[in-house]
Structures are given as structure tokens and as C-alpha cells.
């Protein structure tokens, strides 16, 4: 345990990194399947089944990353877990209701009598919307330091809308890769409609974060940090330009580059996330509690870490396996 230096330093750091990684994977993976849910009302009846089929084998495992992220917060930083979640009591409730509605609608829409299908489709959309909006809201509140003032709530409502549109964009990008024909053409149109959410969302968060605290401002706008960090906004800008250009070229008749927008969107999410992580480090509760103060006992963290080192590669491995098995264009979902 002492090999790497003081375990009270490197263990919290490792766990913060693991938690960050889980959140990022969650935002990307559940982001696209929430996004597909958000697009439901835009699709016609036949397309709706294909939309659901494109995420059917994956959504369950995608959501598990949220459980892992919140679990890591819970186990590695217990006091922070309590503070963050009690401060976000109401949006958490709305998100959970959304996730419940969405998860069960997946099953019910396929199994309930056909006359009820419209209702379950509506529940599927409503659940996706509630989950996306509340996640965006929580993101905004977190950036604003988890205090409920009018201006903070207003900012959080903005991020709620932007993240929701951003999710619908990555959902559309997923569909561009995962579908073909008329539906693919629709997905391209949806992506064109959703890209502004991505731009405004990334822009708003990037602009607002440094002005929340002088500490974060100095982390970004002092030399030489500013120069080292400059690739981050430049790369993000380049990705947005690429996305803008690419979705005006798609769909191509030979299906070339149909995964381009999805891959670029992933990178963009990752860059934005990296920027945020840099801003808030070392705090887990913004400007209040650092990861080092909130960390659980090193003995306990160490025993989780040992397991994680064995298990996480396995999880990643069979996740990749699952995406490999269900590779290619989405087909009808069936149990046999």
C-alpha cells in the first residue's frame, strides 16, 4: 500500500479518477440511449420499433455505469455523497422517476396489448426527457456550487435544456451509424437539428465555469497553464466544425463515415468532461470539500481497489463483446 507513497493521497486520487471515468462512460453510453428515447416522438410508428431495437441489448448495461459512478461516490467519498444528494434531492427524484418510466416502458411497449403501445411509447419519451433534463439540471447546479439561488437555478435550467438537446444529438449520431435507408436520413436531419444544443451546452459550461470562482479562473487563465490548456478548446472547436460539416454530407450511399458523428460526439463529450474535471479538482463538493477530506478509510478503499483492478477490465471486456455481438445495423429484437 505504501509503495506508491502516501495512500491517503493516491487512493482518493485514484478513486476520483475511477468515478470520473464511470460518469464519463455513463454520460456517453446512456447519453446516446436517452437521446434515442428523446427522438421517439419524431419517428413514425415503424421507425419507433427500430429506434428501440437499436438500443435494446445495451441500455441495461449502460445504466449500470450510473450505479457504479454513484456507488463509487458513495463508497469512496461518503460525506460528499450525502451532501451532494441531499442538495439535489428533488432533481434526483425526478431523474429516478424518469429512469423507472423509461426502463419499464422498454419492456411494456413490446409486451402489453397493442392498444396500449402508444401510451408506453409516450412514457418512454417522458422518462427519457425527465432523466435528461434532471441530469442537465444537476450538472448546472453542481457547477454553481450546489446552492439554490434564483440565478443558479436559471443557469441550471439552461444546462438542462442544452444537455437534453446534446443527448438527442448523440442519440441521432448513434442512429446514423446503427440504421440505414429512410431512418438513417431522418437521423441525419435530427442531428442537424440537435447540434446547436451541443455547441451552446459546451459553450455555456466552458464560459460559466471559470467565473464561478476565482480559483477556477486562475487555473485556466494564468500563464503558462493557459498555453498548455489551449489544445482543449481548439480541439473542441475543430470537432464541432467537423461535426457541422459531416452531418451535411451524410448519409452517403456507400454508408462511409456513418460512425463519424458518433465518434466525434464521444470525443467532444470527453473533452468537455476533462475540462470540467480539471476545473473542479481537487474538490468533490465544489469549493467545499476536497476528495482528500471526503475519502473513506484507506484500508477500505484499498480492498475495493484490488477488486476493481481485476473486475473493471473484465467489465470493459464483456461490454465490448456485447457491442461486438450486436454490431452492424439494428435489426428487429427477438428472443429466439
Amino acid at each position: 500500500m505504501e509503495t506508491f507513497g502516501d495512500p491517503a493521497i493516491w487512493l482518493p486520487w485514484t478513486f476520483a479518477a475511477l468515478m470520473g471515468l464511470s460518469i464519463l462512460i455513463y454520460v456517453i453510453l446512456d447519453g446516446f440511449d436517452l437521446g434515442v428515447g428523446l427522438l421517439m416522438p419524431l419517428a413514425n410508428e415503424e421507425e419507433k420499433d427500430r429506434l428501440v431495437a437499436s438500443i435494446g441489448p445495451f441500455w441495461d448495461a449502460n445504466e449500470t455505469w450510473l450505479v457504479l459512478a454513484i456507488g463509487l461516490l458513495l463508497v469512496a467519498f461518503p460525506p460528499a455523497h450525502g451532501i451532494i444528494l441531499t442538495a439535489l434531492y428533488l432533481p434526483v427524484f425526478i431523474m429516478l422517476v424518469g429512469l423507472i418510466l423509461r426502463g419499464v416502458s422498454f419492456e411494456f411497449r413490446a409486451k402489453a396489448p397493442a392498444s396500449q403501445k402508444t401510451r408506453w411509447n409516450a412514457a418512454f419519451f417522458a422518462g427519457s426527457l425527465m432523466a435528461s433534463m434532471s441530469q442537465g439540471f444537476m450538472l448546472g447546479m453542481y457547477i454553481m456550487g450546489l446552492t439554490w439561488t434564483l440565478s443558479h437555478v436559471a443557469f441550471a435550467l439552461l444546462t438542462a435544456v442544452f444537455l437534453t438537446v446534446g443527448y438527442s444529438f448523440i442519440g441521432a449520431a448513434w442512429l446514423i451509424g446503427k440504421t440505414e435507408g429512410a431512418l438513417q436520413a431522418h437521423a441525419v436531419r435530427w442531428a442537424r437539428g440537435g447540434i446547436w444544443g451541443l455547441i451552446l451546452g459546451v459553450g455555456a459550461i466552458s464560459l460559466a465555469t471559470p467565473f464561478v470562482s476565482a480559483r477556477i479562473f486562475d487555473k485556466w487563465f494564468s500563464l503558462p497553464e493557459f498555453l498548455y490548456l489551449s489544445p482543449l478548446p481548439i480541439l473542441s472547436g475543430a470537432l464541432i466544425v467537423y461535426l457541422w460539416w459531416q452531418i451535411r454530407q451524410l448519409p452517403r450511399s456507400d454508408d462511409r463515415m456513418s460512425w463519424g458523428p458518433f465518434a466525434a460526439a464521444i470525443l467532444l463529450f470527453a473533452l468537455a468532461f476533462g475540462g470540467m474535471a480539471y476545473s473542479f479538482y481537487p474538490y468533490v463538493v465544489p469549493e467545499q470539500i476536497t476528495i482528500y477530506d471526503a475519502a473513506a478509510a484507506p484500508e477500505s478503499l484499498f480492498i475495493i481497489l484490488i477488486g476493481t483492478l481485476f473486475v473493471l477490465p473484465a467489465i470493459l471486456g464483456y461490454t465490448v463483446l456485447s457491442y461486438y455481438i450486436f454490431r452492424g445495423k439494428a435489426t428487429e429484437l427477438r428472443y429466439d
Binding site: 441495461d60 449500470t64 456507488g71 477488486g307 456485447s322 455481438i325 428472443y335
Partner: peptide
């Protein structure tokens, strides 16, 4: 948390992911 945390973490890592990922294959992979 020092006791409950690791137990919950092992639950999520050794079980939750296993069932969630292979459920997709079990249901739709035949």
C-alpha cells in the same frame, strides 16, 4: 461506509455488470 462501501462496490462490480451485459446477449442474442 467503510464496511458497507466495499460490499456494495463488489455487488455492482461482480454481479450487476455481469447480469446487465449478458442479459442483452441472453435476451436478444440467440
Amino acid at each position: 461506509g467503510n464496511v458497507a462501501g466495499p460490499l456494495l462496490a463488489y455487488e455492482v462490480m461482480t454481479a450487476f455488470f455481469l447480469e446487465a451485459v449478458f442479459l442483452g446477449i441472453m435476451l436478444f442474442g440467440a
